[in-house]
């Protein structure tokens, strides 16, 4: 059933877009502020497409907005990686780099999907994801290779987030494609970037799971949704 797989794609972009938008006005430089808002905007746009198609296929009268604003945490199907808090700029950009690398490969594979509507959304998103990965790779390299402090922060960010990488390649029949097949390309690309960034990939494959199945999200998601959903929840009769 493709609805669950579509929701996974849309929840990833929604949750990460929401996280990135928390930076607005607080980034280290004006250029970073603009870039973060731009990525958030792309991701929210992709969310409208994925969740819009999910709602349409489901045929239960829901819309992208009702899926975004009227589900509680246990019905969200995003990766645990994207619900991780922003912490410092290093963690934010490392999270972005890990996600972008997987996301671009997943979207590229999805452009070949038999379902034309899925392929069309992937086609549109691939352009944005290509730019996102380029920028997050450059940032990881610059900050990994920058100063002693920035190097320490980026290695700490990688160590902290690495246990959330494995979930991207765990897969089941709800996924739109077999995600496990994307692992080798992920390792190949990230290793090149880590080498240039003088960062060391953690020597463990331990993975926290439970986001994309909804079995066990982190404590962070509930707080994010409480903020994001406050208006539609408080004023259910209103249109905006």
């Amino acid at each position: 059933m493709s609805v669950a797989g579509l929701i996974r794609m849309g929840d990833n972009t929604l949750v990460l877009g929401q996280r990135l938008s928390e930076w607005c006005g607080h980034a280290p430089a004006l250029e970073e502020d603009i870039a973060l808002a731009n990525m958030a905007l792309d991701l929210i746009g992709q969310t409208q497409l994925w969740l819009g198609l999910a709602a349409e296929r489901e045929g239960a009268g829901r819309t992208a907005d009702t899926l975004a604003y009227h589900r509680d945490a246990w019905d969200f199907r995003n990766l645990l990686l994207v619900e991780q808090p922003n912490r410092d700029f290093g963690v934010t950009m490392m999270r972005q780099f890990l996600f972008d690398t997987w996301h671009l490969d997943a979207l590229t594979a999805l452009t070949e999907h038999d379902d034309a509507e899925i392929a069309a959304i992937a086609q549109k998103s691939v352009k944005e994801a290509t730019y996102h990965r380029e920028r997050s790779s450059d940032t990881v390299i610059a900050l990994g290779d920058g100063t002693e402090e920035s190097h320490t922060r980026m290695q700490a960010a990688l160590d902290r987030l690495w246990p959330y990488v494995g979930e991207m390649f765990s897969t089941d029949t709800d996924d739109l494609i077999d995600m496990s097949g994307l692992r080798p390309a992920f390792y190949a690309y990230t290793d090149t970037v880590f080498a240039e960034a003088t960062l060391t990939r953690p020597n463990t494959d331990f993975a926290h799971l439970g986001g994309k199945t909804g079995a066990r999200h982190t404590e962070h998601l509930g707080h994010m949704l409480a903020t994001m959903q406050v208006l539609p929840r408080n004023y259910p009769d209103a249109t905006w």
Partner: peptide, 25 residues
């Protein structure tokens, strides 16, 4: 932005605030 009541309103507000940062630049 984090509390915009629809996805479209969120996208519009993000675009607007991004414009403002661009004006600053």
């Amino acid at each position: 932005i984090t509390r915009a009541p629809t996805l479209e309103r969120k996208a519009i507000l993000l675009a607007k605030v991004q414009d403002e940062a661009g004006h600053g630049l």
